[in-house]
Design a protein around this nucleic acid. Structure first.
Lengths: 223, 223
DNA sequence: CATGCTAATAGTGTATACAATTTCACTATG
DNA sequence: CATAGTGAAATTGTATACACTATTAGCATG
């Protein structure tokens, strides 16, 4: 018998598609969404669309205004900073917890990802960077074994994901980030949870600054 | 012209009612909800009900299982601890930020709330305690002026609110909590953000332990 | 009695119809 | 020409009908 989870509900499918369209930048901040348009676009009725939209609203990816409509959420610089500050706290905490869980195998897997990031930075291969950077960060999250913490971090990341991608083209901090990652890895090897937490916090803070800086060139995307 | 926000949508109304029914314990963890029952209960069709339920699901207050149904979320002890740990971080951070914003007026308002808490504890007036305790904590949140931080904390609080209330009847830590609050206030007066953050973290951690302890007497509510 | 089949029931998932509201273009009026 | 008003179109909000799935009770069969 086929796995039931494979034929997911239309609602769930639509939810994921719109969510990914937003995080990947196929739907841009401020863009107006109408239920009919989405309904035609995905060839389903408005019922599952509306339910998916409610979910996306709760997660902050879209904004409703009663009887008016829906738009992809825009973030102000203030909100952006706020979200990164919270991520800094939470990701730092996740690393702190994960440190004791990390085996030598984990460290070597992380080191491997780290090397791929160095290559990606050298080649200015943004796709490879994004992919491995996501892997690097999620490794700690997952190892922490805290489901709710994970969900929160992922949710917050989604809200800034597009902005982060946008800014990366202008970003000259690859080397800095690699330095941070190296420092985090080093702290993990030494099983120094305090240090690892501090380094991760610092890392996310730096990311925040870089993004705010580079987005000032693209003000139209910001609120 | 009447304020438009007054005649909110049915969906929003239902959302708030179910949410409050859960946080206030009129709907208990593990309780099964059917759309028809809710539909009859509130005399509206299933459409707004389902949308409200999606919202509640995103916030973790209820759990869906495809083609099966809905139930009010249960928390395991592990999850409970996890949520309190996150709250400890976030509320500590909120206090840290708010410290510089607090005027003398704010301090005196907080002191006033603090006094009411002392009275409530002396009289074993749980209602008064809950109310003023909520005021005390929200004061810092609000003063921090971070919208997203606020929302997160409130969301996390809702998920544990009922358990916290349950446990309070068995709780003998009023005096301890009052001591914590006093310490937090003291740190705020001294404008010592670091200290205030540490105290608040400690306070939430203590709450966590008290709740886990007292709920072990009511295992049936836990997962 | 145990087991497996079947039909009925209840509940969720989706589509559609209708109601209410907003928006916007067009017209009438000063 | 500016502006208020009016009505049609577009869009969201809600109700209802239908489809699909899961559960359960009852019956037949071994």
């Amino acid at each position: 018998m086929a796995d039931n989870r494979l034929d997911k509900s239309i609602r769930q499918d639509i939810y994921e598609r719109i969510r990914d369209d937003i995080t990947c930048g196929r739907l841009l901040p401020g863009e107006r969404l109408t239920e009919n348009k989405l309904s035609n676009m995905y060839n389903v009725s408005r019922s599952p669309i509306r339910e998916a939209l409610r979910q996306l609203e709760s997660e902050g990816l879209i904004s409703f205004e009663r009887n008016k409509g829906i738009e992809v959420s825009k973030l102000s610089v203030k909100q952006m900073k706020e979200i990164y500050d919270i991520r800094s706290l939470l990701e730092g905490y996740a690393v702190r917890i994960s440190v004791e869980q990390l085996t030598k195998k984990d460290i070597s897997a992380l080191t491997n990802i780290h090397k791929k990031l160095i290559t990606a930075a050298r080649d200015k291969n943004i796709q490879a960077w994004l992919q491995n950077n996501a892997l690097f960060h999620s490794y700690f999250r997952d190892k922490a074994g805290k489901e709710n913490l994970c969900q929160l971090i992922v949710m917050l990341k989604r809200r800034t994901y597009h902005y982060q991608n946008m800014s990366l083209s202008y970003d000259r901090y690859f080397e800095t980030y690699i330095g941070h990652h190296a420092a985090i890895l080093e702290a993990c090897k030494k099983k120094d949870a305090d240090l690892a937490e501090r380094q991760m916090r610092q890392h996310v803070q730096t990311t925040k600054c870089a993004i705010v800086e580079s987005l000032s060139m693209n003000r139209n995307l910001l609120m």
